[in-house]
Amino acid sequence: MTATQADLQIDRPSVADGAALWRIAKESGTLDLNSSYSYLLWCRDFAGTTAVARAEGGEAVGFVTGYIRPEAPHTLLVWQVAVDAAYRGRGLAAALLDGLTARIAAERPITTVETTITPGNTASERLFTSYAARHGADVTREVLFGTGLFPDGPHDPEVLYRIGPLTAS
Rank of each mutant, 00 (worst) to 15 (best):
L40K: 11
V83N: 08
G153T: 12
V159T: 12
L33C: 12
D17R: 10
A72Q: 07
R108G: 08
R103P: 00
G136K: 01
F150P: 05
A51Q: 03
A85Q: 14
W22L: 09
E56K: 14
R69Q: 12
L166V: 02
G120N: 12
L166D: 01
A51M: 05
M1S: 15
V81I: 10
L144N: 00
D84K: 06
T116L: 07
D45W: 10
Y87F: 15
P165E: 02
G148W: 04
Y87W: 15
R23V: 10
A20N: 07
R90K: 13
A25E: 13
A86D: 15
A53E: 08
C43D: 08
M1W: 14
A16H: 09
A47R: 07
P109S: 07
H155N: 14
G62Q: 10
R12C: 09
I10T: 11
A105Y: 00
A123L: 06
E56F: 12
F46G: 01
L41W: 09
F46N: 08
N121A: 11
A25G: 11
A85K: 13
E158N: 03
R12I: 11
L8A: 11
E158H: 02
T116H: 06
R12T: 14
P70T: 05
G57N: 14
Y39E: 06
A102S: 12
R134T: 09
R103I: 00
I163S: 01
S28M: 10
P157S: 08
A123D: 08
D7R: 13
Y87Q: 14
T112W: 08
T118P: 05
G153Y: 13
F145G: 00
Y161K: 01
Y37E: 15
D7T: 15
A85E: 15
G66I: 08
F128H: 04
T50R: 03
I68Y: 02
V113G: 02
Y161C: 02
G89C: 03
D152H: 15
S38H: 13
E56V: 14
S35K: 07
R162I: 00
T118S: 14
R90V: 04
D152S: 15
F145K: 02
G120Q: 07
K26W: 12
D152L: 13
I68A: 01
D156K: 15
G146S: 12
T50H: 02
L21M: 14
P70S: 09
S14T: 15
I117C: 07
T4F: 06
T140D: 00
T50D: 05
T30F: 09
I10A: 12
G58W: 08
G153D: 13
N34D: 14
A53P: 11
K26D: 14
D32F: 08
G148M: 06
R54G: 09
Q80L: 07
I24D: 06
V139S: 00
F46P: 00
D45V: 05
H74C: 09
A72H: 10
V78L: 06
A86P: 02
P154K: 10
L41M: 10
